[in-house]
Design a protein around this nucleic acid. Structure first.
Lengths: 241, 241
DNA sequence: GTCAAATAAAATCTCGAGATTTTTGATTTT
DNA sequence: AAAATCAAAAATCTCGAGATTTTATTTGAC
């Protein structure tokens, strides 16, 4: 019979389920990360029989996790022909970037109008956290920090638009941000960004806190465009290999 | 042993699987329709054990179908606490309408710029088909035609924006159109629309074919706003009961 | 009587085996 | 040799039973 006593602290760091409530969520999160990292290659077939063993879950559980990823457009499914990692292309990257701009700028504008003190605090705090990890890039190895940078960068951009009331804008931004994260990570392939993103972030932060929504949107658009330009070159070079 | 010969034509109208390639797709489509119709009530719990019998599929198959609907925001899921029909609210309806306007007008503008002869033909044809069924409203019973009207209305709006190159705009429009369809069908509850939608559609069609994107967008926005105004009143009256 | 703990019931979640379909490869025919 | 046919292999899809968790009910303590 199984012991019902709560295990000692630290023991649950061994728990393969982490924070997931269900095995579906666990498999979903593991595969999501593997797709964003590029470990699961775009276009690759996702065979249930094989992935069962990789992620240590049953067939139905795995299919349900894959179906969740279909809803986020990280996986495609075709009846009787299985699942695949969603393919990537410059055209799709361009399209996703364009639509993300449309939606994110709308959300940013509203957020700057609505934002209260908590919103300002969130922007300041997340920018600070992001700056700290960017500071370390100058000395430390980039690869070990990139996971942390990804998370803090996401948090900063989320904080900027946190004061939007629109659930739908937020939902679509989440999806498109995730798409752009995949393109960024695949294009960079572990390398460092070679332009001054920090100053762009700071300028956006300043404009937002000054409640200058036109300027903040202008700078944000510039930021997204510049990022796309830089990454699309790397992407093309990489795909052309 | 089961006969392997292809059944006679007409016999497959008895096939509960219809056009679906898999049972997952079949259950997904059946539940989708039931949610859009309001037969499955917003907020209602979706018990796998019960729905298994209703849709005549196994537990895993049903869960996979439900998970597909989670991706379209028609169903919500909470770990270890099951699935629910996505709740509705005036606030959500308002938000979905706002974001749909943002995205759909962008798509319409691009479509009018890009549209070729095939696009024009599609707009003319779908408008004609929609007009025909609206004609019949004057004489025939509305309830029997409403399914056909829904489909043709959807087709007309899809034809207008068919020339967008953006897969992402189209994807989000599909999701938001479906949301608005649910609100419309629930708010109307089988009743007829009491304003002249036909003329609004015609005006949009004319502007689009004249390649007057500003005017087409203006009229389209007006159309969406008026529809929202009318439906939101019915919706509030209904929810207040 | 109220609260809490223990128990029972109900529901979700999970698994792996089997049915169905697709894909691959071998054989035959033109 | 190319195309078509058939058989074998591999993969998807599907099911229902059992494990786990949540929810409802009962019992007991104060």
């Amino acid at each position: 019979m199984r012991e019902t006593v709560t295990p000692a602290l630290g023991a649950d760091s061994e728990d393969p389920r982490r924070g997931a409530r269900t095995l579906v969520e666990f498999a979903y999160e593991a595969m999501r990360q593997d797709i964003l990292r590029g470990a699961l290659i775009p276009g690759e077939r996702l065979r249930v029989e094989a992935l069962k063993d990789t992620y240590k879950v049953g067939a139905s559980t795995l299919r349900e996790a894959l179906t969740l990823l279909v809803g986020e457009a990280l996986v495609t499914a075709e009846g009787q022909r299985g699942f695949r990692v969603a393919p990537i292309s410059l055209k799709d990257f361009e399209d996703a970037t364009r639509v993300r701009k449309l939606i994110e700028l709308e959300a940013l504008r509203e957020s700057i109008t609505n934002g209260d003190d908590d919103w300002e605090a969130g922007v300041v705090a997340s920018f600070h956290r992001l700056s700290k990890v960017e500071e370390q890039f100058k000395s430390q190895d980039r690869a070990t920090l990139s996971g942390e940078w990804e998370e803090r960068n996401r948090a900063f951009h989320a904080a900027l638009i946190a004061a939007t009331h629109s659930r739908w804008l937020n939902h679509f931004i989440d999806i498109l941000y995730q798409q752009s994260e995949r393109y960024r990570r695949i294009a960079l392939a572990g390398r460092a960004v070679n332009r001054d993103v920090h100053n762009e972030h700071m300028a956006i932060k300043e404009a937002a806190l000054n409640r200058d929504s036109d300027e903040a949107c202008r700078l944000s658009e510039l930021h997204i465009d510049r990022t796309f330009e830089a990454l699309s070159k790397m992407f093309q070079a990489q795909q052309g290999e």
